[in-house]
């Protein structure tokens, strides 16, 4: 071939990879999913005002406007989320926390000196900065959660039920001298007086309050109700003996509409007992 032949075929060069035709409508759906997922408040987006530079009156105002109050006493810092949406907070070591509404996070002045000990009441999502020399610790009376650097959802109830669901890396639950590793896509559950349980959690449903996505594959009604109520801080009753398998993916920031759909699966309906208290009931024949 001489160079003029090559020039003739050069016309074909600009069609390089033109054969690749992605599915545009499927791509658009995926894009919406990505945008929705990112619309969840990201840690470190908002900055917390420091009460030390504010007058008492301003602090009160802060309580009602920002709603998250930082209490400093005994060298301890408590962040309580009074607002009506998840609150992003960055700990002194750069660890990012997304605190659910009504939840409370406490840490001492010595946080990040030899270790990184925090206490949690309620639910939060953590992205812990990697630092093997200073473990990140959360204690209940019997169980200790130990982390070096990873991302997970943690819920600690008033009854000291501790539930951690790991989305990245691995955490450890320490209880009575025993270690229970909880890797990514697993869930660890600790309850006073009981041994820790570690289960697969590929759907990461415990993150739903943050991601808006719940996935069930043939899960019993009882388990679905527990998942939704714990996650969003609701109390939901259902007729005794009522059980049917639930399958499906729910993408909604509104757990009430999810509960409605689930109730309808079993020919039931959802009734609000007390919306203010988050008290709901599934009623009906349950067939």
């Amino acid at each position: 071939m001489n160079s003029s032949d090559l020039h003739k075929h050069e016309r074909n060069f600009p069609s390089y990879k033109e054969g690749f035709s992605p599915d545009v409508e499927a791509g658009l759906l995926r894009l919406k999913g990505r945008i929705e997922a990112k619309a969840v408040p990201q840690p470190s987006v908002r900055r917390l005002f420091r009460p030390s530079v504010l007058s008492a009156a301003a602090a009160v105002l802060l309580l009602f406007t920002v709603g998250t109050l930082l209490l400093v006493g005994n060298g301890k810092t408590t962040v309580e989320n009074f607002t009506d949406e998840p609150f992003a907070y960055t700990l002194p070591d750069g660890t990012e926390v997304l605190l659910q509404q009504g939840s409370e996070l406490t840490f001492g002045a010595d946080y990040n000196e030899t270790d990184r000990l925090i206490a949690l009441e309620g639910q939060a999502y953590f992205e812990v900065v990697k630092d093997a020399s200073r473990p990140f610790l959360v204690n209940t009376s019997e169980t200790e959660l130990r982390v070096t650097g990873t991302a997970f959802n943690l819920r600690i109830s008033d009854e000291e039920e501790l539930e951690v669901e790991v989305s990245e890396g691995e955490v450890e639950l320490h209880q009575h001298g025993k270690v229970y590793p909880v890797p990514a896509n697993y869930r660890g559950l600790a309850f006073p007086g009981k041994s820790c349980v570690v289960k697969a959690a590929k759907d990461l449903n415990r993150h739903a309050w943050r991601t808006g996505i719940l996935r069930f594959e043939g899960v019993s009604l009882a388990d679905v109700i527990t998942t939704v109520s714990n996650n969003y801080g609701l109390s939901v009753s259902y007729p005794q003996g009522c059980d049917f398998p639930v399958s499906g993916t729910f993408s909604s920031e509104n757990p009430i509409s999810v509960l409605q759909t689930i109730a309808e699966l079993g020919q039931c309906s959802l009734e609000a007992r007390d919306e203010i208290m988050g008290d709901y009931a599934i009623v009906g024949l349950c067939e």
């Binding site: 945008i35 619309a39 009506d84 988050g278």
Partner: peptide
């Protein structure tokens, strides 16, 4: 609890992609 429910209802109305 009050706030949680309210927030969720508001969010449901103001979808991220209007």
């Amino acid at each position: 609890m009050v706030y949680i429910i309210h927030l969720l209802l508001i969010n449901a109305e103001n979808s991220t992609l209007p």
